[in-house]
Design a protein around this nucleic acid. Structure first.
Lengths: 226, 226
DNA sequence: TTTTGTGAACGTGTTCACAGCG
DNA sequence: CGCTGTGAACACGTTCACAAAA
């Protein structure tokens, strides 16, 4: 198995979502073409992504929806539960905690921390907010840490999470964090997204044009544009 | 000027943040090397990114912090204000509204919509939540729409925002949206990030190794890893 | 026929490495 | 010397296009 690119993993995540929908619609099989249409990408991309992990389809027929869903579930590691610690019980932290879909996919928030004395001791979605200084060693077997603190505390909290033994960090603070190589790090940065939009809108250029091509074998038409 | 890649734009956004910090620290000049270190990338990347837009540095000296900040500010279109409509006044919507940094960078939320009668009419961070059916044409000169609704409403809301004339959409619903080519679309999908972490943690492989290389001219050492 | 799985071709973003200038 | 700006080399993800299978 070759090294899997981050983009492939993200697409798998999308395929998984589509398959859930398609399954709910009662379909038994789906082609790479249909799957691709739902995501606005090419069918070759779908097949290539899946081919890194095995041969899940049947030629002429497509993929069995339930089976493929289970395969991707296993590939993504969603067939087990992950113990998550949330640091930062402010607006964003609270919003994340309230998000039901969190636990639904295998992520259990087992502890919430904050530095603000006014928040410590309060209950949030069934969990008592603890003092962040209690982080080291407190909840055993932590897998993932979620950082929803203000900018300035973020790196410090990341270090504490690493010390507490997490192997993955999801960062919501708008700043680049550093962690040792054995700790996976992902960031969600709303500021960057907004500024990227700002850049795109700022360009009063001619509407961006598609990369041209004439051959069409594999090309998927995108129903409503990009 | 060549076509600018999305990754370059996102990095510009990061540089901008670093420059703000560096300026606050009172430094007058900064080299591509230092800038790169802060972001965990190579100095060549920094110089290449900037070179798409002009020659902002001075050989032997580096870049003037304030000047470069202003240049990037203009490039990203942050030297004007953008009128933003928020749809969805739930947990995430409320968290976004409460985020002060929003307005600080030029994004003014001028209207909030929701479908839930219980929320309509309530005040949120100084704005009265309006019925989403009032969206078409209500606030004139909208630039950007932010979608913070449940999954199922997202595409419908996107269509409404497009009809209302927005040129950019920031989507927080965990689903692929479609919009016409003249509307820029960005997504923040926490689910994908978590599942990407899950995948990384699930791989009990040997710790991922760096791509090898011996020459070092331009290489930047990353202080604490990736 | 339909649709998968995949090597090969292609295009695009990153890194190298150095000329050029302060 | 130090550091930028940049063509050229490289690496890597995407798309093509077709053999194979149902």
């Amino acid at each position: 198995m070759p090294r899997i690119s981050e983009s492939t993993v993200r697409r798998l995540s999308h395929y998984y979502r589509v398959l859930e929908e398609v399954q709910a619609e009662g379909r038994r099989m789906i082609s790479s073409r249909r799957l691709a249409e739902r995501e606005g990408i090419t069918s070759a991309q779908v097949r290539k992504d899946l081919s890194y992990f095995g041969s899940f389809g049947r030629r002429g027929l497509g993929y069995n929806v339930e089976h493929l869903r289970e395969e991707i579930r296993a590939i993504l590691g969603l067939d087990r539960r992950w113990r998550v610690a949330l640091v930062g019980a402010g607006h964003i932290g609270a919003a994340l905690l309230a998000y039901r879909g969190f636990a639904a996919q295998g992520f259990d928030v087992v502890a919430v921390f904050d530095r603000d004395p006014a928040r410590i001791g309060q209950k949030l979605s069934g969990l008592v907010v603890q003092d962040v200084t209690a982080l080291p060693g407190s909840p055993p077997g932590l897998d993932i840490g979620v950082i929803a603190t203000p900018l300035k505390a973020a790196q410090e909290v990341a270090d504490a999470l690493v010390a507490a033994g997490v192997r993955g960090i999801l960062n919501f603070a708008p700043r680049k964090l550093f962690a040792p190589p054995h700790v996976a790090l992902r960031s969600v940065d709303m500021t960057v997204e907004l500024e990227s939009l700002s850049f795109a809108l700022h360009q009063t250029r001619a509407p961006r044009r598609r990369r041209g091509s004439t051959r069409a074998d594999d090309r998927t038409k995108h129903p409503r544009g990009a």
